[in-house]
Design a protein around this nucleic acid. Sequence first.
DNA 1: AAAAAAG
Length: 594
Amino acid sequence: MTQTGMFSESTRKPTRSTGPRYLPPNLRSPQNGNAAFLDAGAPEFTPSRFYSPQPARTTRGRGRGRGPRYTPRRNPNWEDEKFDELEVVDDTLEEVKVPNNLDAYEDIPVQVSGDNIPPPVKTFAEIDLGDCLKQNIRRCNYIKPTPIQRHAISIAVAGRDLMACAQTGSGKTAAFCFPIICGVLKHPLTVARRGGGGSGLACPFALILAPTRELSCQIYEEAKKFAYMTGVQIAVAYGGTPIYQQLRRLEKGVDILVATPGRLVDMVERAKVSLGMIKYLALDEADRMLDMGFEPQIRKIVEQMDMPPPGTRQTMLFSATFPDEIQRLASDFLSDYVFLAVGRVGSSTDLIVQKVELVQEMDKRNHLLDLLHSQRSNATPHSKHFLTLVFVETKKGANELERWLSRNGFPAIAMHGDKVQMEREQALRSFKSGATPILVATDVASRGLDIPHVAHVINFDMPKNIDDYVHRIGRTGRAGKCGLATAFFSDKNLPLAKSLTELMKESKQEVPSWLSQHAENYSAGTGSAGGWGRHGRGDFGGYDFRKDTASSSTYNNAYAVPAIDGYYAASAASVNVPYGYTYGYGSIVASGWD
DNA sequence: AAAAAAG
């Protein structure tokens, strides 16, 4: 029996205009040195100040091989400013209550569909997570759950399978880690995880899969914090590094294994890991994990090794985007699952100002230099420390652009999958620390990575599909901070015009008229014919694909703007939704954890 | 025609 209904919950309003600036709970820890950029006395970051557009030039005096050679070094200005000062936070902001009938556009909708949906919680306290875990949640300075956490944790703790779609930076990691840790704690600690008493076969209770090595590392680090002093054993397995240390760690016993697919398969085939005891399976960036390149490997792990079948394990899939053809694949892994969607455009993305500039391929480099010069000359004492993340299409292109920028006075470093793991991690560290404030990356860095202080994401080469664009720009505008995203749009990108226009409209961005024009002219057909990008329909994953078959057209009519989540609650609020709940929220608290 | 993920 499908539940239907519509609920509105009391909302909190973030205060932006007056008083101390709002700081998300997770950044309030005195140990969190990265909170420094939010220095209370500093002028607030505004994209317009950070960047003023300049016309593209077709020629420029700087040629290849001219200009000073770049030697990596620490940014000399970096140490002037303390990077670990703390924000003054007015805690009473937490208590500000706003009436339910808040302007609908302020609301972040949460849509839940499925059978017998466990109701959401309002606080961590009301869920039986166990004292240890709750203490860690407090230690991490999580005050209140974000919308994705309110719903997902409740659903997961109730033992239900889950497909969850929530915007970048909204706390997805915690949303699946808490229930998993809680579940592990509820099981008596057996010797199974120790490989049946020293047999060397690790039998984790929970498996978390992620698409890149760096992301597995990040999840592992987060999970360790959440599991601090609980006795829950966590290990990580990914490639590019000798397997021996990872195996030695596994021999000590593991409850939760965080892994990338290739290394995990290797370990299972070497009979070092058994998936036979898995009770929890979580896929982060699940749509990526099931795309063309990854799907066979994931199917192998989930369906062709010794993993218990759906229904006997609990499966949770998370991503910011969930195209319906991927939902269809994913449903193979799930049993009687709940679909949960939190507006993608809402909190995270409406803090990101999106610019699109028409640039010919051959002019891109000079245009980038113009942009960076402009950014540099507009820099305030604070914004000069902000980081810029430049996305390119190819690994070769990343190397070339790194070289070009470095030679032209902009310390940059490249990160891509052809570098050895040490170099990749070094590049990321150097970027995070500010030593190299520009990172030129392929899509290896587009998903999930939480890099504080990225104020500007530049799509030097546009991605082939709109979902990747969403993930890329989601590297900025995190944790309630503003961000700027600039796209270099060239002739090559015409197929993306329509979906990009739709996305920008839904996130209340100014769409250049030339882009709207292209969107109309080039209607991109539908689907992926002719390439590996998906264009067209603009279904950005904010709804449950099951509704297509589960319900009448009334349902679809209820979603005049089904695609880009953020604001459809405004229209859905006045109509009946026959397949699930729609909740309204005030702007959510971005937690900084994906 | 790409990136990622095992070595």
